[in-house]
């Protein structure tokens, strides 16, 4: 994946924008009905503001992070913003990306979310999709799988993680105000994290 990082971000953005109503509906159940609106606004700004032809993947991801920080508006702004800015650290100056690079970037991104949100797995947040996805990716790569294979496994694990969020109560974010009453509903942030990974996988596969 060289110098196509903008195109990949655009794919993610389009997928998020397509799912705007769906994500917002999920957030209506256990939050404040803005997750899709927030994320779509953020990615529309990314598609518009991030340079198309800067070959430095790290620099492009950093700009993406900064853009999300200032345009998303909700908790997902500083969370995904930090994720991209942390991933950028692993890819600074790189013009192409190996499966190891991607693994490192994903690891830093996931750790960034946890640090920003002061959250761990099992709290009904985007981490319930991201942490299993990272683990599955690493397992597949350790077995000798390709970037695309790793991403397939990451997406499958993220999907299971999203399902799992239905069975647990939220202890972080707005949904935590509902406590046990949040059980039965799927977490919007975990869902957008899964959509993001799927968009990356589809981009790499094609």
């Amino acid at each position: 994946m060289c110098a196509r990082v903008y195109d990949c971000l655009k794919c993610i953005g389009e997928r998020i924008i397509e799912n705007r109503e769906f994500l917002t509906d999920l957030d209506r159940e256990i939050g404040d009905a803005d997750h899709g609106v927030n994320m779509a606004r953020g990615y529309a700004a990314v598609i518009e503001k991030v340079p198309r032809d800067n070959p430095d993947i790290g620099a492009v991801l950093k700009k993406t992070g900064m853009t999300l920080l200032s345009t998303v508006g909700g908790a997902s702004g500083p969370l995904y913003g930090t994720a991209y800015m942390e991933a950028a650290k692993a890819l600074a100056g790189k013009e192409s990306l190996t499966k190891e690079d991607f693994g490192k970037a994903l690891e830093l991104a996931v750790a960034g979310v946890g640090k920003r949100g002061k959250s761990v797995r099992g709290e009904k947040t985007m981490l319930d999709a991201l942490i299993p996805a990272l683990d599955a990716y690493n397992r597949k790569i350790a077995e000798g799988g390709s970037l695309a294979d790793g991403l397939d496994c990451a997406c499958a694990a993220a999907k299971e993680g999203v399902e799992h969020t239905k069975s647990i109560a939220a202890t972080k974010g707005r949904a935590s105000y509902l406590g046990e009453r949040s059980i039965g509903h799927q977490d919007p942030g975990a869902t957008s994290a899964m959509i993001t990974l799927e968009a990356i996988r589809d981009f790499i596969r094609e």
Binding site: N38, L69, S70, T71, V72, G73, G77, P78, G81
Partner: peptide, 11 residues
């Protein structure tokens, strides 16, 4: 946000 919408903006 910059455009007056509800939200917070770290920048």
């Amino acid at each position: 946000l910059e455009d007056g919408e509800i939200g917070t903006d770290a920048v």
